[in-house]
């Protein structure tokens, strides 16, 4: 795994990525209507670790989240999961797809 120390910094510029309080309980994964095993706890852990390459490699998963907030409403740590996913989309649109122009 290659750690990119600037990854989280760039993400913060786009939005408020907040997953530090995640205790990896798995409630989110268990409740996801899509049954996405990676989302959101494992993915967020990779983000916090600065594993940019593996996060970018999961762009399809990131864009397939329904933003339905089933996980978020039941998260015991109160993490703003949907907003975090949106931050990742904004990052991908900027840094990978070149869709930043207004």
């Amino acid at each position: 795994m290659k750690v990119d120390s600037g990854f989280l910094h760039t993400l913060h510029l786009g939005g408020e990525f907040d997953a530090n309080l995640c205790m990896n309980c798995g409630t989110c994964t268990a409740l996801c209507p899509l049954g996405i095993e990676l989302m959101p706890r494992k993915l967020f852990r990779r983000v916090l670790l600065g594993d940019k390459e593996s996060v970018v490699g999961q762009s399809e998963t990131i864009f397939s989240c329904l933003l339905c907030r089933m996980c978020e409403s039941n998260c015991p740590a109160g993490i703003h999961i949907a907003e975090n996913v949106r931050s990742l989309r904004t990052y991908l649109n900027h840094e990978v797809y070149g869709l930043a122009e207004a």
């Binding site: 786009g14 939005g15 933003l67 207004a102």
Partner: peptide, 11 residues
């Protein structure tokens, strides 16, 4: 907004 096109959305 949902798809993270923040600049487009804000404008």
């Amino acid at each position: 907004y949902d798809e993270g096109l923040d600049e487009n959305f804000s404008a």
